[in-house]
Amino acid sequence: MHLNFEGKTVAVTGAAQGIGAAIARRFAASGATVAALDIDMAGMAPFEAEGISRHAADLGSRDSAAAAVEAVLAQHGKIDILVTSAGGVRGQVGRPIDEIGEEDWHAIFGANVDAAMWCAQAVVPGMRARGSGRIITISSGAGLRPSLTGIQAYASAKHALVGLTRQLALELGPQGITVNSVAPGFVLSNPSTEKQWEAFGQERQKTVLNAIHTRRLGRPDDIASAVAFLASDAAEWISGQVLSVDGGHA
Rank of each mutant, 00 (worst) to 15 (best):
H2F: 11
H2D: 14
E6S: 10
A11G: 04
A11W: 00
V12S: 06
I19T: 07
I19R: 04
G20M: 10
A21N: 00
A21P: 06
A22W: 01
D38N: 08
D38A: 01
I39A: 14
M41K: 15
A42R: 04
M44C: 04
A49I: 13
I52N: 02
H55R: 03
D58T: 14
D58S: 08
L59F: 04
S61P: 08
S61F: 04
D63F: 05
S64G: 00
A65R: 03
A65F: 00
A66C: 08
A66Q: 15
E70T: 13
V72N: 04
L73V: 12
H76P: 00
G77Y: 09
I79E: 04
I79R: 00
I81K: 00
L82N: 00
A86C: 07
A86V: 11
G88P: 03
G91V: 09
Q92T: 14
E99Q: 15
E102P: 02
E103W: 02
W105C: 04
F109A: 08
F109M: 01
A116F: 13
M117C: 12
M117N: 14
A120G: 15
V123Y: 01
V124I: 15
M127Q: 08
G131V: 07
R134Q: 12
S140C: 08
S140E: 02
L144Q: 13
L148S: 12
G150P: 07
A153W: 06
H159L: 00
V162A: 10
L164N: 07
P174E: 10
I177M: 02
S181Q: 02
S189N: 08
N190E: 05
K195F: 14
Q196P: 01
T207N: 11
V208C: 02
N210L: 12
A211Q: 13
R216F: 12
L217K: 10
D221A: 13
A224E: 03
S225L: 01
V227D: 10
L230A: 02
A234L: 11
A234N: 05
Q241Y: 08
S244P: 02
V245C: 07
D246V: 11
D246A: 08
G247L: 05
G247D: 14
G248N: 06
